[in-house]
Design a protein around this nucleic acid. Structure first.
Length: 829
RNA sequence: GCGAGAGUGGCGGAACUGGUAGACGCACUAGAUUUAGGAUCUAGCGGGCAACCGUGGGGGUUCGAGUCCCCCCUCUCGCACCA
């Protein structure tokens, strides 16, 4: 009687074994090449969900595989531990965020351990520890010195009920996601990181990441940075001093500019209307536009409206006096907040011009055609040939843009310029549970950085959570009342904390040396491990986290802490976990609890199913029956290995053994084919097909008949098949395979076994199956010696009775052969 | 609207550079075992009685198309007044 597959015992045994032996603790002194595998660290929300199980199972396969391939693998785990949910929990449940967070971490750590992931737990870190964020405060001070951190007033989403700033994504349909109160725009002083200084480098380096990162993510990053090459043109004002500067990418259309549009927030908008009959109308219109939230204004379907300011400016190229409007679709944040309107060649301007009866003047014609304003039903936005443009007539748009930019500089009317959509990163949060920004405000000295030897600025713990809104730090006197580091007079501490994306912008480097207590990073160790060779995580961070991390890595490089430009050489973005057609979520009531899954089937089954059901980058459709199937497979492997393992206990595996029959030759070929297939598939992250290949091997061995399994008949080969199956499955289901490996008589830990290599010679077949087609349709199959000549294969194909029946005596026009695979006989009629 | 990706059995999904479509798993059917259920094992499993037809639809290239080209439809994701 064979022992049952008692996964709960096996999994607990090996988890304690790995912990006791510190199997996955790594150092920097290995002769092996380094490999840094990282999964995005979790927010300690309470318990892990299936998305984590999937993310970390994928990562663990790669980590364990690379280890078996002879790499010195760094595979760390930690906690993205600052953030708003902890504060909400504090308000709702009267638990301190610190306690809530620590308890969650403890529980989630135990869950991850139950999954058997191969982490070096010695390197675990939590970003809410002062030992972590103190170094972030140090970076902040250095950035302040370098002008990379600065404070300015800016318009932000503000919830009047929660009394806090909301990120754009926390504003849903113009109202607060939490209390559904109307969100207003408000000017507030905010801290920023000057990410725009790195815009060009971040954009250019996207090309270097191609191949290692999904195109989709790179496209999103490029779009987000949004580089546009164009020009700034000054339009002198009529009847008063000064001018309006516009930004355009279509300076080739400047002769067609028949008015200028301003954003409602433009400093001159109200000014220009002052004293004109339009004054009242402009005031009302601007106020109305400003009242609208960002999300409302971002709606492209919104009707384009505007109002005349009563003032004019001059198009320097045509010397024509043109009206200035305030328009609701012009954004202050982009360009200069003023645009030259060319109705003939911009769809928005076209609609606006038709609505307010402004002139449409085509100055770019499609090749071989001439546009007439009165015939146009939409703007002609493509490049073409310039006309009505004085000395530039006849030029193509591209050349025209270059010539006009040059002309602008020559005449002093403007200049060619480059703009980015990317804006500086606002990192101020009016919240408690985050890293304090280490500056002090003194009436006499102004803003004073906290001296480095006074770091960390610790987050106080004796805080009340009333839910009344506003940061608790702002009302905690013992925190914000301090002495000015410079003049020692009473001063006020900054009460804003940093965006939690700052912590996740450098944690990957800190894993290299989490115990370093004199400086943020031990350069030697950080340089040894960085960059991350493979990063695995959800695509939802395609822009935010990944862009911030790329920026911060460059900042740390420029400050001398890191030697790399890019933090993540390769990126794998996994799909979502779907059940009943929707993403798993509490609100959809379709969540599967990992604890329950582990309890019923074990971690190996959970891992196997998530890896087998879909390739990593695609969404995974959850199926309870699929889980059963994965579990059944492990049971089959267990019973099979236990049965034959006992029977063949004295036999040494030999995958190179000379086969005793054709059947064994085929088995040997199968073993080597499977090694090759699984290796190739794991290398390209096709875990589902890798697992399928092992299943095929299992089915093949299982199909051997009783007499073929006699101990004296190629037992070494059968044993090799068995062991190959166990070794190839090791990265996917480490517990059950470790147990079987041990029971097959091995003392060496399976995690340290060298990954097998296939033998090309063993793949060679003595006979080959050739597919025979007649006119491209499958008509027969023949078996020929592997070294048969083409003529012999052709005659064998023609002689095949099935094939001959289709030939029906008609003349053969042509015969096409794909060596070793296929013969296609082409006949007429 | 723009950009990217995807449409293959009842389901999840295979098919490297054009060359046996549906690997592997799930579900299902029949049988064996079992007091029964579960588990396990064996066989079958795209459609059609057949010739044949089948990879969203329609054209095309080719000896041969899921794979390449053109047009169209649907879905998913991202961006979206960016001047």
């Amino acid at each position: 009687m064979i022992e049952k597959y008692e996964f709960w015992k096996i999994e607990e045994k090996w988890q304690s074994e790995w912990e006791r032996e510190e199997s996955f603790v790594v150092g920097e002194d290995s002769p092996r090449p380094k490999y840094y595998l990282l999964e995005m660290f979790p927010y300690p929300s309470g318990r892990i969900h299936m998305g984590h199980v999937r993310n970390y199972s994928i990562g663990d396969v790669i980590a364990r595989y690379k280890r078996m391939r002879g790499f010195n693998v760094l595979h760390p785990m930690g906690w993205d531990a600052f953030g708003l949910p902890a504060e909400n929990a504090a308000i709702a449940n009267k638990v301190h965020p610190a306690r809530w967070t620590v308890e969650n971490i403890d529980y989630m750590r135990s869950q991850l351990k139950k999954m058997g992931f191969s982490y070096d737990w010695r390197r675990e870190l939590a970003t809410c520890d002062a030992d972590y964020y103190r170094w972030e405060q140090l970076f902040f001070l250095e950035m302040l010195r370098r002008g990379l951190a600065y404070k300015r007033s800016s318009a932000v989403n503000w919830c009047t009920s929660c009394e806090t700033v909301l990120a754009n994504e926390q504003v849903v349909d113009g109202v607060c996601w939490r209390c559904e109160q109307q969100v207003v725009m408000r000017e507030l002083p905010q801290w920023f990181f000057r990410i725009t200084d790195y815009a060009d480098e971040l954009l250019a380096a996207c090309d270097d990441l191609a191949g290692g990162w999904p195109d989709k993510v790179l496209t999103m990053q490029r779009n987000w940075i949004g580089k546009s090459i164009g020009a700034e043109i000054r339009f002198p004002l009529v009847d008063r001093e000064g001018d309006l500067t516009v930004f355009t990418t279509r300076q080739d259309t400047v002769y067609g500019a028949t008015f200028v549009s301003l954003a409602a927030e433009h400093p001159l908008a109200l000014d220009l209307a002052e004293g004109t009959p339009q004054q009242q109308a402009v005031r009302e219109f601007a106020a109305q536009v400003k009242r609208m939230s960002h999300s409302r204004r971002d709606d492209a379907d919104m009707e384009k409206e505007g109002v005349f300011t009563g003032s004019y400016c001059v198009n320097p190229f045509t010397e024509e006096k043109i009206p200035i409007y305030v328009a609701n679709f012009v954004l202050m944040e982009y360009g200069t907040g003023a645009v030259m309107a060319v109705p003939a060649h911009d769809q928005r301007d076209f609609e606006f011009a038709r609505k307010y009866d402004l002139p449409v003047r085509p100055v770019i014609h499609p090749a071989g055609a001439t546009l007439a304003a009165e015939d146009m039903t939409e703007a002609f936005v493509a490049d073409g040939v310039m006309a009505g443009s004085g000395p530039f007539n006849g030029l193509g748009s591209a050349e025209g843009r270059a010539r006009i930019a040059a002309s602008l500089e020559e005449k002093g009317w403007g200049k060619g310029t480059v703009r980015y959509r990317l804006r500086d990163w606002g990192i101020s949060r009016q919240r408690y549970w985050g890293a304090p920004i280490p500056v002090v405000y003194c009436d006499r000295c102004g803003m004073v950085p906290v001296p480095e030897d006074e770091l960390p600025v610790r987050l106080p713990t004796n805080v009340e959570f009333t839910g009344a809104g506003g940061s608790p730090l702002a009302s905690l006197r013992e925190f914000h009342e301090t002495a000015c580091p410079r003049c020692r007079r009473p001063a006020r501490r900054e009460t804003d904390t940093m965006d939690t994306f700052v912590e996740s912008s450098w944690y990957f480097a800190r894993y290299a040396c989490p115990d370093e207590d004199r400086q943020p990073l031990d350069r030697e160790r950080a340089n040894y491990w960085m960059a991350v060779d493979q990063y695995v995580g959800g695509v939802e961070h395609a822009v935010l986290h990944l862009l911030y991390a790329r920026f911060f890595t460059r900042v740390l490089r420029d400050m001398g802490w890191l030697a790399v430009d890019e933090p993540f050489s390769n990126l794998l973005t996994q799909g979502m976990v779907i059940k009943d057609g929707a993403k798993m979520s509490k609100s959809k009531n379709n969540v599967v609890d990992p604890d329950e899954l582990i309890r019923r089937y074990g971690a190996d089954t959970a891992r196997l199913f998530t890896l087998f059901a879909a390739p990593p980058e695609k969404d995974l459709d959850w199926s309870d029956q699929g889980v059963e199937g994965a579990h059944r497979f492990l049971n089959r492997v267990w019973r099979f290995a236990m049965h034959h393992g006992q029977r063949l206990s004295g036999v040494a595996a030999d995958a190179g053994a000379e086969p005793a029959s054709d059947g064994f030759r085929e088995l040997r070929r199968r073993i080597h084919w499977t090694i090759k297939k699984v290796t190739d598939d794991v290398e390209r992250f096709h875990f589902n097909t890798a697992i399928a290949a092992v299943m095929e091997l299992h089915n093949a061995v299982n199909a051997l008949s009783a007499e073929e399994l006699e101990p004296d008949c190629n037992a070494a080969l059968v044993k090799a098949a068995l062991e190959t199956e166990v070794v190839l499955l090791a990265p996917f289901v480490p517990h059950v395979t470790s147990e079987l490996w041990q029971r097959l008589g091995h003392r060496e830990s399976l995690a340290d076994v060298t990954w097998p290599e296939h033998s090309e010679a063993a793949l060679v077949q003595e006979t080959r199956l050739i597919v025979v087609q007649v006119n491209g349709k499958l008509r027969g199959k023949i078996s020929v010696p592997a070294d048969a000549a083409e003529e012999d294969i052709e005659s064998a194909a023609l002689a095949d009775p099935k094939v001959a029946g289709f030939l029906d005596g008609r003349p053969v026009k042509r015969v096409i052969q794909v060596p070793g695979r296929l013969v296609n006989v082409v006949i007429g009629g």
